[in-house]
């Protein structure tokens, strides 16, 4: 549905993106993750036909973003990062304008506008001036304008940026509900934003692709060693020494969360779950807690991005 091939954007002074390649299938929710300045907005602007790439190809729904830009734009819903709106218009008036501009037939405009007003939780505000809405509600209007032509493809650039935690939760929920059968690209520089909504994540940094995978695979592939969290009632020194002797354990450290807490790093592929209880029992200690620690996507992200730097 969306294909990006070796895409490069040269701003003159620097490269906005540098040889990006990725794709999204029909109906896929793609998370587009990268620190500020990574090139997310640049990529999205090429996909939405705002500007052409310097080299490479971008196709949306089978149409080239440069050659067949009008065809692409007909199928698109886009919410730019800054959510630009006409502040001197009323919500309903604005959405009718957008519907017309996006080619919704005149007889269907009212229906489409009513639908997105309902869907985006704006039913109380159709007559409000956009300038009088709160940031969270402007975000909803931004989403509504993206959705008003019932687009196959939805491109949202950092849709929760600058909102407070409650608004973030509301907008995220709305996005998940409204994504429906659409193909969607959602960018963010904050990981939970995309890992909660998207099945597939593309990570970019400094304009280059760093990783493409599911959130789960990213976690398990990237970290060579997994870790376990243990709480054992016993002398700290002894526990550290005895656990260190178990085959497959690479490191044992006390954890700050409690005096009897330890973090055990495990070599890749090893399984030590069965080996720990006997050691504890043989030494007459008590095993209070034992669980595997999942590397968070946050770790993965930092790991991937800092690796690039090195």
């Amino acid at each position: 549905m969306i294909e990006v091939e070796n895409l490069t954007k040269d701003y003159g002074a620097r490269l906005g993106i540098d040889g990006l390649t990725f794709s999204a299938e029909k109906g896929e929710l793609l998370g587009f993750l990268g620190p500020n300045g990574a090139g997310k907005t640049t990529t999205m602007r090429i996909l939405t036909c705002f500007f052409p790439a310097t080299s490479g190809r971008a196709t949306v729904a089978g149409f080239d973003c440069f050659e067949d830009s009008l065809e692409v734009r007909k199928r698109l819903g886009y919410m730019p990062e800054s959510v630009p709106l006409y502040k001197d218009m009323e919500v309903g008036e604005y959405l009718s304008f957008v519907a017309g501009a996006k080619g919704v037939e005149a007889k269907d405009v009212k229906k489409s506008v009513d639908r997105v007003i309902g869907d985006c939780g704006l039913s109380e505000y159709p007559k409000s001036m956009i300038s009088e809405l709160s940031k969270g509600y402007r975000q909803r209007v931004g989403l509504a304008q993206a959705l008003v032509n019932d687009p196959e493809i939805l491109i949202l650039d950092e849709p929760t940026n600058g909102l407070d935690p409650r608004q973030i939760r509301e907008i995220r929920k709305l996005i998940t509900e409204l994504a429906g059968q659409r193909t969607m690209i959602l960018s963010s520089h904050i990981l939970p934003e995309v890992s909660k909504v998207c099945k597939k994540i593309v990570i970019i940094d400094k304009g280059k692709l760093v990783a493409v995978d599911t959130p789960d695979n990213l976690v398990s592939n990237v970290h060579g060693a997994t870790k376990m969290f243990l709480r054992i009632d016993g002398p700290a020194k002894g526990v550290t020494a005895e656990l260190g002797k178990i085959k497959g354990v690479s490191k044992v450290e006390p954890d700050d969360s409690a005096p009897d807490a330890f973090i055990v790093s495990i070599k890749k592929g090893a399984d030590i779950k069965q080996d720990i209880p006997p050691v504890v029992v043989n030494n007459n200690w008590n095993l209070l807690e034992m669980r595997a620690i999942q590397a968070s996507l946050e770790d993965v992200f930092i790991h991937l991005v800092t690796k690039e730097d090195a």
Binding site: C49, F50, L70, R73, L76, Y78, P84, L85, A101, K102
Partner: peptide, 14 residues
């Protein structure tokens, strides 16, 4: 200035 140009240029309007 307001950035609405970016949106209008991505609508299917010439």
């Amino acid at each position: 200035k307001s950035g609405t140009m970016e949106l209008i240029l991505t609508y299917p309007i010439r």
